[in-house]
Design a protein around this nucleic acid. Structure first.
Ligand SMILES: [Mn+2]
Ligand SMILES: [Mn+2]
Ligand SMILES: [Zn+2]
Ligand SMILES: [Zn+2]
Lengths: 150, 150
DNA sequence: CTACTAAATAGGAATGAATCTTATTTGTCA
DNA sequence: TGACAAATAAGATTCATTCCTATTTAGTAG
């Protein structure tokens, strides 16, 4: 993502914060920026390690709390995992995930036909669907290579 | 699931254990039986509470370790979650999940057209797909009712 | 610009989930 | 039946998350 686009996203983020009467703190903006720049669906701790480089005495709690705030105001999501630490995603567009069961890497993929799937008929008719995601479990290229060597 | 069907499943389970050179312990069978009987995708702790009634001095570690063994030998799966404790699923058939973001309940649904979806074209061609699941996030009927009251 | 106030932060304690360690018990098989 | 590797119970440890509280700060009104 180029710096132009990031700047725009951060503008919009700041607007959203204002709408929710949240203060624009340097920590919040830094965390949001690093989340945007990362394409790996980082955990709170992974992001903490990164943000810490610029803010040496930021606390883990601030990173974690802030990420959950992002989820609450709708600028990020927690993604589906199979255990371990929560992983965060700033990509709000319709998309889906590849999940490497070997190394835990989570990769985006886009697919119009998946996005356009109708909600199924045979679900309890009083379940109110808010979002849909396809998760593909498998082995990523890197792990495949390592495997074929081993 | 009727007792007939459960008995059959347990037979098959015992065979699988033998094939993997795993001992048939009363704990293993009890944990597997309770997992089968539960349709709520229980956590290790939830299952521990249940199995404990019949085996008062079973340990949590045994339940947890045993569930992970089930995953390893392919008689159960860890299902996709958005944080919190792992949830286990003995249903190996092609199916998908409704996820209540309010109460955390995970409900099965079956849908032929979802099962039959082709793997998408535009994924890294060296990602080896092992399984596909659709997750619908939303609000379940109970939580909807509670909400409309509140 | 200054002062005020509610919100946010840092840092550490507490809780929850999963795993590890070790002594003991128990299936399995000869 | 006896030997032995595997499995278990119980508690300790590690990792993830949330809570607590004193301090700092963004936003705002004067
Ligand atoms: Mn994503
Ligand atoms: Mn299921
Ligand atoms: Zn991988
Ligand atoms: Zn619910």
């Amino acid at each position: 993502m180029d710096e132009q686009r990031i700047a725009g996203k951060i503008e919009a983020f700041i607007d959203t914060c204002r709408r929710h009467h949240l203060k624009i703190t340097p920590q919040r903006v830094a965390i949001y920026r690093e989340l945007l720049q990362s394409d790996m669906h980082p955990s709170a701790d992974a992001l903490y390690q990164i943000v810490q480089q610029a803010y040496p005495n930021i606390s883990f709690d601030t990173v974690n709390r802030t990420l959950m705030t992002f989820v609450n105001i709708g600028v990020a999501n927690v993604v589906e995992i199979f255990g371990g630490a929560k992983r965060f995603d700033p990509n709000l567009t319709d998309h889906h995930h590849l999940h490497c069961i070997q190394c835990g890497k989570i990769t985006d993929f886009h697919d119009r036909s998946f996005d356009q799937l109708e909600d199924p008929e045979n679900i309890p008719d009083d379940f109110h669907v808010l979002g849909k995601r396809i998760v593909l479990k498998g082995i990523c290229s890197e792990c495949r290579r390592k495997r074929s060597i081993a």
